[in-house]
Amino acid sequence: MTYLSPLGYLLGVEGVALLRGMREGTGDRTFVEARLAEIRELLADPTLRAAGGLDAVPGGIGTDQVYDEWAAHYDGPNSMIDLEQPLVREILAGLPVGTALDAACGTGRHAEYLAGLGHRVIGVDANPRMLAVAAAKLPELDLRRGMLDALPLGDDSVDLVVCGLALCHTPDLAPVFAEFARVLRPGGHLVVSDPHQVLSYLRPTLPRAPGPDGRRSILVEYHRPLSAYLTAALRYGFQLRHCAEPQAERPERPTVAPPMPTEVGWALLDQVPEAAAVALSVPSVVLLHLQSPG
């Protein structure tokens, strides 16, 4: 059981901002005193005191249920995709045209770009609602339902694999990279992106819809250090061609905070814009370009 406290989260953001300011030499006296004053205000805020918090069950909701609800809105604004997508496309644009697999293709955002480059594209995803959106957008696309650790493709069948922002849903990287190695032809390319582990510690843990027991839920995700991806890839002979850990620019926050939310969520950051700008200025995505042995 996890207790999600809006006050606890905001105090955590303030604490991270103070620690970063001291560690990096950017926290002068004015900054530190402002953080301490803001902490006192948060502790005295009657809305936060009244809100308390809520219990949530890790694993009480699954990836399928979350993406069922998200499918219709997945192509809307998303700051992580806005950061990741241009960097992935920059790599893809420099690779030879052939047969490409968009693994965990979702609504087909990478598949659409690959097709535009001239690739014969296969899209694989485990969620039928996400595949339905992809099929409506890209009726000519070869779409298949399947899991990352059991791809519905033959051995040595593709020249390129792209897997965008999906490995955080897999508990074990080894069987997934084994599948990437199996379906790639010798010398084939693998481009992988995933949410960054550092950001996962700082972003709000969102309470999800109640489960069968009526309690709120938390989607379990697997955020890993960069070494975990490299270890899994090297095990199957992949060679590293490029690695990046880009950081998103924090959006401007309102100078006058809106009414205090009563649940943990992104809107809470509007209450502490200066602390949030410092605390969350961290790598947001890990990006790897790998090549199978040729």
Rank of each mutant, 00 (worst) to 15 (best):
M22Y: 12
L19N: 06
A72D: 15
G52M: 11
F31E: 00
G76H: 08
Y74H: 12
D75I: 09
D68N: 07
V32K: 07
R20H: 08
L48P: 04
E38G: 02
G62Q: 11
A37G: 13
Q85H: 12
A72R: 09
G27F: 09
R35K: 03
I39Q: 10
G76K: 04
V57Q: 13
Y74D: 07
W70L: 15
P46C: 07
G25F: 06
L42R: 04
G62W: 03
V66F: 07
G62P: 00
Q65Y: 04
Y67N: 08
R49P: 00
L43E: 15
P46F: 04
E41M: 06
W70T: 09
L54Q: 12
T30V: 14
S79P: 12
V66C: 07
E33R: 12
Y67P: 07
G52N: 05
V57H: 08
A72C: 04
G60P: 00
E33C: 09
G62S: 13
L54M: 11
L43V: 10
A44G: 05
T26L: 09
G52F: 07
D68W: 04
D45K: 01
L54F: 00
D75C: 11
Y67I: 01
E84T: 08
P77L: 12
A44D: 13
A51L: 05
Y67H: 13
M22E: 13
H73R: 14
M80F: 14
D75E: 14
Y74M: 10
V66M: 11
G53E: 07
V66N: 03
G25R: 06
G60A: 02
D28W: 04
L83E: 08
G25D: 02
G76Q: 12
F31R: 00
L43F: 01
V32E: 10
I81E: 15
P77A: 15
I39L: 09
P86N: 01
A51M: 06
L48N: 02
G59H: 03
W70R: 14
T47V: 15
Y67T: 03
G62L: 06
A50Y: 04
T26W: 10
Q85V: 10
L19T: 08
Y67C: 01
V66L: 11
T63W: 09
L42V: 01
V32D: 05
V57C: 10
L54S: 07
A51F: 04
L83T: 05
L87G: 05
Q85F: 14
V66D: 07
R20E: 05
P77W: 05
L19F: 10
F31I: 00
D82H: 02
I81M: 11
S79H: 07
F31S: 00
A50C: 03
L19S: 12
